[in-house]
Design a protein around this nucleic acid. Structure first.
Ligand code: MN
Ligand code: MN
Ligand code: ZN
Ligand code: ZN
Lengths: 138, 138
DNA sequence: GTAGCGATGCAACGGAAGTGCATTTATTGT
DNA sequence: ACAATAAATGCACTTCCGTTGCATCGCTAC
């Protein structure tokens, strides 16, 4: 518990009760979560607060936003040392077509791509869609 | 003109007036287009028709849908020989942070990725965000 | 204590995707 | 050519999320 407070404070995020709960929820889940997921997990919660909490978390480098192609914004906690604010932690994401869960594959970085003349890369997003380990049954 | 009709018919899409117009519009643009773009291009057009036209085009392999991370569905004509229905034409896409335009880089295929044990890949989406050739000024 | 600022909660807005159903237009069979 | 059938189009409406405005609450500093 104190652990979470320290983490938040180290990223200049005031550790309010709600924020600690959200952080804890995301830490327990090992998959990317959507705003609606959190909303459903906490009966007594307001969507706006959750929305702004995630926004703050993102700005302060507590979480990173994931676009897995479903059209729904998902979020996952940043690993220690993740520099995703600087687009320096370009790991790929896997979205399961069966269970709809999305996971970070933090060990798998996006390979460097040679672009045509004139194109300048600043950020990259690579999502693999398929069947996850849980659903493939092994 | 006859050319377009033949293309559509070869993909079992009836070449109606509207469909030919939309196809022509997409062929002239060299970038991915959103439903709203088409809507604005044709003053006298109904969104539903455009929506369903794009859906038909996609199902029949005339266009492929692009998720460039903006949250807006975009579409581009399939190159001749593109097998994107079968997830066999995994080229990457480039989204310009400056002009918001998205282009297909059909020559640049998504590199093969080794996934952890148990994960089965079926599809992939790679979007590079940055500054396009037009905006980088060369 | 009180002034000030950040966090929270409620309500409402907005864009875009998607659906139901009536109408028009094209195709087919006689 | 005509009727029957199917496909395409148009209008209205819905839903889902993300987003914003504004009032209120609660902590913190002076
Ligand atoms: Mn991630
Ligand atoms: Mn493309
Ligand atoms: Zn799964
Ligand atoms: Zn550009």
């Amino acid at each position: 518990m104190k652990e979470i407070e320290k983490t938040l404070e180290s990223k200049s995020v005031r550790p309010t009760a709600m924020r600690i709960l959200i952080y804890k929820y995301m830490a327990e889940k090992e998959i990317a979560v959507a705003l609606t997921d959190i909303e459903n997990a906490f009966a007594k919660s307001d969507r706006t607060t959750l929305y702004r909490t995630l926004k703050t978390f993102e700005e302060k480098g507590v979480v990173h936003q994931i676009d897995d192609g479903t059209g729904i914004h998902k979020y996952a906690l940043c690993e220690p040392g993740c520099n995703c604010e600087l687009d320096q932690d370009l790991h790929l994401h896997f979205h399961c077509a069966n269970c709809d869960e999305t996971v970070c594959l933090t060990e798998h970085k996006i390979p460097h791509i040679n672009l045509p003349e004139g194109f300048i890369a600043e950020d990259a997003n690579l999502v693999i869609k398929g069947i996850c380990e849980k659903c493939s049954g092994q």
